[in-house]
């Protein structure tokens, strides 16, 4: 049913990703799909990496480690944004098209009062992406 699963990852908070990563791995195994891990970074040093090249290397390492665990074909995609606090949602929507994904699996937090005004990243992707979105809470 699905052949290419996209998993947006926040490399600064990998500890919160376990459930989403496992969900994506299980779905990939079930449907025989490939998985593409997508990360968005700035060119300035951040919590996850000191520069885009390092970010990409870390994202690839995460992909390789996942491939070893669940055996699916994996790829990674690093997107550089000038202002991720604002642009993240649109960059992810763009990545859905560019990677040709037919399912997005992404982690989110519990919705709160703030989400009535500004959607969470996963909430935005779920409302705007043309493909199925699995929000993991």
């Amino acid at each position: 049913m699905y052949s290419n699963i996209m998993v947006p990852v926040d490399l600064a908070h990998v500890e919160r990703l376990a459930k989403a990563l496992d969900t994506a791995a299980d779905l990939a195994r079930h449907y025989g799909a490939s998985v593409c891990y997508v990360g968005v970074t700035t060119s300035a040093p951040g919590e996850a990496a000191h520069n885009p090249a390092e970010f990409e290397a870390r994202l690839e390492a995460l992909g390789a480690a996942q491939a070893e665990r669940h055996g699916a074909a994996v790829s990674t995609r690093t997107i550089v944004s000038n202002d991720p606090a604002i642009d993240l949602d649109d960059k992810l929507i763009g990545a859905v098209q560019e990677t040709g994904a037919d399912l997005v699996v992404m982690a989110s937090h519990m919705p709160g009062l703030m989400e009535h005004v500004f959607a969470s990243n996963a909430g935005y992707v779920a409302s705007h992406a043309a493909v199925s979105v699995f929000v993991v809470r």
Partner: peptide, 20 residues
């Protein structure tokens, strides 16, 4: 988060040579 990532630690090249 450095310790919790699978790995990739220590690769600190900006685009091309630079002195981190």
């Amino acid at each position: 988060s450095e310790q919790q990532t699978p790995d990739g630690v220590g690769i600190r090249n900006p685009d091309g040579p630079a002195n981190i």
